[in-house]
């Protein structure tokens, strides 16, 4: 009798837990509305590429002032600035940063010309983290 009661209690307990877990799993389902962003006109891609790459020399110069002697840190600091520009641009124009990331990649691979005639550096400094952070 007691064993039966325990089984019943266990069934109720585990049943409740499973229901809650199932509810949570369902709740994590993607909501298509959250992915809706403004479309990305193809002609914008070149403009965007030029916007992001034309400032590269200045950003790299600023990185050298920030990290005076560590080449990886200088490179990394430049990428931090570039990521900031990408996020800001994406926010202002209602785009997913992934679209900008892709435009930068396509522009570099197809060697798109820019008004300032910038050719971005295609290589990176291998990861050599600093001794302390």
């Amino acid at each position: 009798m007691r064993a039966m009661e325990r089984r019943e209690k266990a069934t109720i307990g585990y049943g409740t837990i499973l229901t809650l877990v199932a509810f949570a799993v369902i709740r994590t389902q993607p909501n298509p509305a959250s992915f809706r962003t403004r479309s990305f006109p193809p002609e914008k891609a070149h403009e965007l590429y030029a916007t992001l790459t034309d400032g590269e020399a200045d950003d790299r110069q600023a990185a050298v002032k920030h990290f005076r002697s560590n080449r990886w840190s200088q490179d990394d600091d430049f990428f931090a600035k570039q990521a900031k520009h990408v996020r800001e641009y994406a926010t202002v124009h209602g785009m997913n940063p992934g679209m900008l990331v892709d435009a930068l990649d396509v522009g570099m691979h197809e060697h798109w010309p820019t008004p300032a005639g910038v050719t971005p550096t295609a290589t990176v400094i291998p990861c050599r983290p600093r001794l302390t952070y």
């Binding site: 990521a83 992934g98 990331v101 892709d102 990649d105 691979h109 990176v124």
Partner: peptide, 15 residues
């Protein structure tokens, strides 16, 4: 491979 950007690294495998 893209030159990429580690501050946006999660975007790359999706693409």
């Amino acid at each position: 491979q893209a030159r990429g950007n580690r501050w946006l690294a999660a975007y790359y495998p999706f693409q």
